[in-house]
Design a protein around this nucleic acid. Structure first.
Lengths: 261, 261
DNA sequence: TGAGTTCGGTGATGCAGATCACACAGCAGT
DNA sequence: ACTGCTGTGTGATCTGCATCACCGAACTCA
């Protein structure tokens, strides 16, 4: 599948499948969406809610590519070659340190633009992006993108709004990581964040999230073991429970109490 | 001077001096700059490097106001009433927790725009801004500002670039706070950051920064005491020294070693 | 001159959580 | 079935640093 293991890490490098060679059959078990005009994301994503004219011009300069799970979209320190719009799938934005430690800055959902700061700011990518699932991304080269937002006022405004969102999310994370002492607090806060798109089933909030304890630890700046222990504690107290990839929250109020203190 | 103490905190609330009533004599011992066209900041600030047309239109909608040291420009949670361009002085961007803990997200320097994310994103201010020195800020109301960047393409691009910068700075801080274990490491990194605009005097890097140990602690998410202790340690090892408001770095290389490990 | 305030320096103490070191379960591949 | 691998569950240990509790220095203000 054109993917080779990078030495030491569990990450994969690969040749992305472009839409040219993959239109006939869906790669990685994913249907390809190739036309922003008919894309179902249009409603909730920034870039997909452009004027029809701008959208058409965007379609003309983008290239849709598919990635397997665990693929590195770009790596921090690389010169920014363009932006990626996450059409399908999920990806994690990470910062890594020399000694191999990893901090997950955020989990990107469909509709988000990746690499926007670096391209707009004209700097190197400052984060590493790795897909968590088979994903589809639309790529737009740096020069074309800059020219595009220069000539399309609405797109520029959308870009700015997207950036402002990212900033706010970043400040939020900083608040969470920097201001809370206990891991319990940070974990509770995280679960509550995720619960926002949860459904009530059998008197409990239920939602899906395919993250390992290790990844959760990297999200809150803690260690795998303490995440395991803290989750076990939540379970014992019947507050919340993580079964495989489904999160169950029994006592939201209590969780909020833990998160606020 | 129109400043009243807020209960409990060391912060002050006040009536800002607008340029209308303060043109004659300089408030807070500061000369007023009222015209962006002749402002010396033009070279290094985003907004000040606009086209002449855009600059003139900006001048028309902005109001210059002066603030004393320790003034609260805006508070997190407040509805965003507009953006502030920091013309002179310095200010700290903070996040506070319910129990009174404070995290300083960044120190804003002249030329920076404050409250941009909230105004562009249409949300409440997500940080608190407090002046560190007597400062001069240019205020632009929310609606006027949004209309302005909608009609001035170059300004919109500048706003986006400014936001991208903020994002990167935020990600950098997260990396610093989240990935390093020891306070020594974080403090070393911080001193190195500051050393960027330092001069060589007597074989040492020398720069000014008027921050208390308490504030440094809030910058790296630590406690005042450990900052004092760690600085004492640096001093004993002749690596760096903080005398009043002047920072002296004797062995930059060693500091880098401490910051990277 | 003395009182009040903010800052910096230092010791003693305790604990949350990192780290190490296992053991086990589930799953894929051969 | 056997081997490997990834993810989870748990105990034991060890330490960095938050926290508390002081004290002295420098500065402001009446």
């Amino acid at each position: 599948m054109g993917a080779t293991q990078l030495a030491g890490t569990g990450m994969t490098h690969f040749q992305p499948l472009t839409s040219f060679n993959s239109k006939a059959n869906s790669p990685y078990g994913m249907p390809i969406v190739d036309d922003c005009g008919s894309c179902k994301l249009r409603c909730n994503s920034f870039f997909c809610s452009l004027s029809n004219d701008s959208l058409r011009d965007l379609d003309a300069i983008k290239h849709t590519t598919s990635y397997p799970e665990g693929a590195l979209v770009f790596v921090e320190g690389q010169a920014a070659r363009g932006v990626f719009v996450l059409c399908q799938g999920r990806a994690k934005l990470m910062a890594t340190s020399r000694d191999g430690r990893t901090l997950i800055l955020k989990i990107a959902e469909p509709g988000e633009i990746l690499g926007l700061h670096a391209v707009v700011g004209g700097t190197a990518y400052e984060v590493t992006v790795e897909t968590l699932q088979p994903s589809q991304l639309a790529f737009i080269g740096r020069d074309e993108f800059v020219k595009y937002i220069k000539t399309h006022g609405d797109a520029c405004l959308h870009a700015a709004q997207h950036l402002s969102r990212d900033c706010q999310a970043a400040y939020d994370s900083m608040r969470s990581i920097g201001l809370s002492h206990s891991v319990t607090e940070k974990l509770a806060r995280l679960l509550l964040q995720w619960s926002s798109n949860a459904r009530v089933v059998d008197g409990a909030l239920r939602t899906k999230l395919a993250l390992t304890h290790e990844e959760i630890a990297q999200l809150i700046g803690s260690s795998r073991e303490t995440v395991t222990r803290t989750l076990a504690d939540f379970k014992k107290r019947h507050v919340a429970e993580l079964h495989g990839s489904t999160l169950l929250i029994w006592k939201r109020a209590e969780l909020e109490g833990l998160a606020t203190c």
